[in-house]
Design a protein around this nucleic acid. Sequence first.
DNA 1: GCATATCCCTAGTTAACCGATAGGATTTAT
DNA 2: ATAAATCCTATCGGTTAACTAGGGATATGC
Lengths: 152, 152
Amino acid sequence: MISNKAKYAFRALLAIAAAPEGEAMTSAGIARRYSIPHKFLEQILLDLKKAGILDSRRGKSGGYVMLRPADTVSFGEVLRIFEGPLAPLPCLSRQSYRRCEDCVSEANCEIRREFARSYDASRRVLDARTIGDALANTPFGVALPREDRRAG
Amino acid sequence: MISNKAKYAFRALLAIAAAPEGEAMTSAGIARRYSIPHKFLEQILLDLKKAGILDSRRGKSGGYVMLRPADTVSFGEVLRIFEGPLAPLPCLSRQSYRRCEDCVSEANCEIRREFARSYDASRRVLDARTIGDALANTPFGVALPREDRRAG
DNA sequence: GCATATCCCTAGTTAACCGATAGGATTTAT
DNA sequence: ATAAATCCTATCGGTTAACTAGGGATATGC
């Protein structure tokens, strides 16, 4: 199960990405609309800003906007911000590989081999699908160049 | 990341399944061989017994044996025993479905839709691959009837 | 230039869970 | 009887999840 934090992050991101171009959404507004504890959401949006996904404006009529286009932000990237490595075993993480302490032979480890199959399958989806895809309800496998996506 | 408990369970199961037919393996023996804390492993083996996967004999020359054939025990089944539901969202679990409390419309939830893709992909692997497959190093997609598997 | 609305930052709280550890009770083979 | 094994329950220290709280910094609009 993914954390509430990650779930809230996705809700907020989808809302911000769906807003009219250039229009900022406030944390309070999003919190109200999706019944997310406000102060908790603030932390989350801050994390997304630090990660370079959101931009923000302060003061009256401030709020959050996308820093990068929504179809360059994958579900996997967001998930990693809030959940850490997605790999089921440390020895399967590419981005933050760690050897299993008690592992004798990685190459011959049946557990590693089997989980690699499962992880590959889910990672392929999570790293391919973007916030933009989700909003457009683009079927998987239809990989258009970015310009075409925006146009359509 | 999966828990140590689950990882230990897989190590133990693979060892027990790989033992000569009818030969029981002791918790102490497995613990020593794989550097698993003995008392911790006992609890794990007990859980596997309660789940109907292992059988046990007590007293001197006792130990654990498979109750069901290794190629009927999937990675998914074992994982669920120790980690609970594998679904990334409660509303995606078939075996223990729960509605997201604050969900307005499940059918229109983008988060649910995207995670369903990823979960389907990994579940398909985890529920198909068995302890027996892992030991035989059977490539995925080769689905032999059970008798043939045992023979080969 | 002041009130207000917003984002920004840090710390604390509570409950649950993980990864054991501990101590014994029960069963069985010799 | 003894030793070796499983079985059962309780406890514990550390970490994390999910908030809660309190304020600081900054921009806007009157």
